[in-house]
Design a binder for these strands. Sequence first.
DNA 1: CTTTTTTGCTAAAACGTTTAATTAATTATT
DNA 2: AATAATTAATTAAACGTTTTAGCAAAAAAG
Lengths: 336, 336
Amino acid sequence: MSRVSIKNIAQVIGVSNATVSLVLNGKEKDGRVSKEMADRIRKMAKEMNYEPNNLARGLRIGRSQTIGLIVADISNLFFANLAFHIQEHAEKFGYSVIITNTNESDLKMEKMTNILKSRSVDGFIVVPTEYGQPYVEDLIKRNIPTVLIDRNFPEIAASSVMVDNYNASVKALKSMVNQGCRNIGMIIYKSELQHMIDRKQGYTDVLEKHGIYNPSLIKEINYSNITSDVEIAVESLLLKERNVDGIFFATNSLSMLGIKQLMKLNVDIPNKLKIVCFDKSDVFDFIQFPVSYIQQPIPEMGKNAVELLVNQMKQTSGTQKKVQRIELQTELLDSF
Amino acid sequence: MSRVSIKNIAQVIGVSNATVSLVLNGKEKDGRVSKEMADRIRKMAKEMNYEPNNLARGLRIGRSQTIGLIVADISNLFFANLAFHIQEHAEKFGYSVIITNTNESDLKMEKMTNILKSRSVDGFIVVPTEYGQPYVEDLIKRNIPTVLIDRNFPEIAASSVMVDNYNASVKALKSMVNQGCRNIGMIIYKSELQHMIDRKQGYTDVLEKHGIYNPSLIKEINYSNITSDVEIAVESLLLKERNVDGIFFATNSLSMLGIKQLMKLNVDIPNKLKIVCFDKSDVFDFIQFPVSYIQQPIPEMGKNAVELLVNQMKQTSGTQKKVQRIELQTELLDSF
DNA sequence: CTTTTTTGCTAAAACGTTTAATTAATTATT
DNA sequence: AATAATTAATTAAACGTTTTAGCAAAAAAG
């Protein structure tokens, strides 16, 4: 036997579709359905194992109660955690989440926005790719509720939930300077994304203020060549004449590879070299030297993104969405 | 301006809905639409930025081209990777994936199956919770295509993609015995799930065959108390009189906590104690002692699950689904 | 004992597709 | 020249909801 519909229930009870629908949506007051009939309908619905058809519902009311989430890489723990919290929170508002991946590919970003649009998601939460700006602009032009997370495009009118990357970086570098570092390297992705630029700027500003800025200590890594690029970068920074006494890793993937290389080279941490990483990692619990790291408030990021989005979705669809940019603070912590 | 529909395109061109639909679905041959008209329609559709409404489509054709994926914990890297590969593969068949979490809660499992059912997913890929069997049975009773992954319920007629947990365990234990271990402990979840039972059975059988089985060396951990339980279990195994010279960790989360504890206690690995873990971890690259681990073929698991499911979904909806149980082999590897 | 209000329900349209059944016009076949 | 076949489209119903407007009966008010 196929799926039970409202019509089926209506027939069995001998009442109209409308009455059943009203009751099952808790609008019995509004529809003035008698208490007895309402109870009878609810009982029968349960008995017949009725489950609403959200396709039909979505078609009719023009909403699908679904959020489209586009992340750069679900197998990266940072994004996996983010996805987890977004989902948990979305559920509280009655939304399901469709998670999709871009693998940092702009092409895939275009594809994923299209797939999700055609599934009538009510809104988007997006970790955009480097040149994904046009696709975000398209969403906004179409007046589809959209919230950027982790990364944003400052020059377009998009709501976003970010951490204060500049100050995170400043915090990290100040701490290194205070601990006596004078030749601090930085390993960062080569990217035009604003959050990377901010992290770099924080580094630059602190070091310049202390008169110890040296641009040749910034190593920019190609995402496509990450493993070998990091190895080379670390080795280059460790050249004797450079006298590097600190390295700041701008993302968790860079940290992992960097630390691996530092261990291979038997670098004396923290005595000869101090390191600060972006993001916490399980790995920190297993290495014999202390690591400082910038902790991002992942649960709050997810929570805020969902709330921003829900607010946007609530607004009457005609009006221009109000742009809200949320910036959360990070914490600088020590692994032990 | 709101979303462009087929009707809009039809009006602009001055033709019927049907013609536009036929063309946009590539059925122009079937519907005998002239080449010129077809081209005109396609061009106009592109120009007007038409995007199909999959809610309407799904409602009409009774399928949503969506797979519901239920995992135990998306923030666990094993499941995150699995989700990643399932998604990549599903996409090739034109399916989107809605990922949801249960956090090992049976209640949530029920909720998630309901949510996904009401979203008319065409099929389910499920990592079931310990007592989630009734919900899987319900899906099967309703003739909804379903594939279990990572865990299964042998007594119900459900298709599944598993690794050969018994032989994985046998492989691990044989290797430890061959390396001279005689008092081997095991740390495993207290669970009635078949894959856990199989892993335990592999342990038992190998050790019994060698006459070195000692049930008091099996430590069963409560999922809700995992951190302290593992600490206690490790300490208990390391009591002098036990003379334990090997520990087998039955899951990645147990491995992580166990290794942490072993490091805290400064155990001499691998000289005094050998360890084998289930699943690979990033952490292995960062610890100073070698670890053996069972590697599960995550990409193949995802691929097989999607293919099984797609096959089920292709079958005419009336017929009883053929049950296929796929068992993949694992590899025993060394971290270095 | 009218009139008004309230109560309890129904009819029917709409959302955007797909698709089977027709129709009408043109071309091919005898 | 009549008939058959092909081509190029159309019509209209259906999928399962939601929701507005309306109707009839009962209850309340005057």
